[in-house]
Write a protein that binds this DNA or RNA. Structure first.
Length: 171
DNA sequence: TCAGTGATTAGG
DNA sequence: CTAATCACTGAG
């Protein structure tokens, strides 16, 4: 699936703070089993930055769930939470530096659990490679929206310092 | 404000 | 094996 606008490896193998900001305004493309691909502009993201970040799942080490975060940037990290919701994340940085961007909103659908339901992302996307997959990828749009930042949502457990990092980015 | 819902994880 | 936790959502 060779779209010329598909983001390549170099986009993802950078620090998560830059990638999270630049993903806002890009197009997430998801291909259902049959029919045309769905395109959704990313409107909100959050950065989770490796072992030291107490809000990041990888701060408690490498487990079956977090394994993909230790892979190369551009892989998909999906996990299930609260018994109902799939969370969709994009792995960033190089191998063994477990960073990821949580996609929190797409145009028309705010909320990380809502959007995965709408666009049909589930466990089967775990480990998918956005740079080569025919099911899911991200495209450049040329847009550079004005971004605002704020504290991350739902990470009160991480303690004062990590809870207050302004690593949520949105239009 | 708060219940629902079940995978994941740490601990015995 | 058990029990606590959880990067959430929608109803009231």
């Amino acid at each position: 699936m060779g779209s010329v606008k598909r983001l390549a490896r170099e986009f993802y193998t950078r620090d998560v703070l830059g990638v999270a900001q630049e993903l806002v305004g890009k197009h997430l493309v998801v291909r259902p089993d049959s029919g045309p691909p769905g395109r959704f502009m990313i409107t909100e993201t959050e950065a989770y930055r490796g072992h030291e970040d107490k809000a990041c799942h990888a701060s408690r080490g490498r487990t079956k769930r977090t394994d993909v975060m230790y892979g190369v940037g551009g892989l998909v990290y999906v996990y299930f939470v609260y018994g109902m919701y799939w969370m969709f994340n994009v792995v960033t940085s190089v191998e063994n530096d477990p960073q990821a961007v949580l996609i929190r909103g797409i145009e028309g659908f705010d909320g990380p659990g809502r959007l995965t339901r709408v666009i049909g992302i589930d466990r089967s996307f775990y480990g998918e490679d956005l740079t080569v997959s025919s099911r899911i990828w991200i495209e450049d749009t040329g847009l550079k929206p004005v971004i605002r930042s704020s504290q991350r949502i739902g990470v009160d457990y991480a303690g004062e310092y990590w809870r207050t990092r302004p690593w949520r980015y949105h239009i």
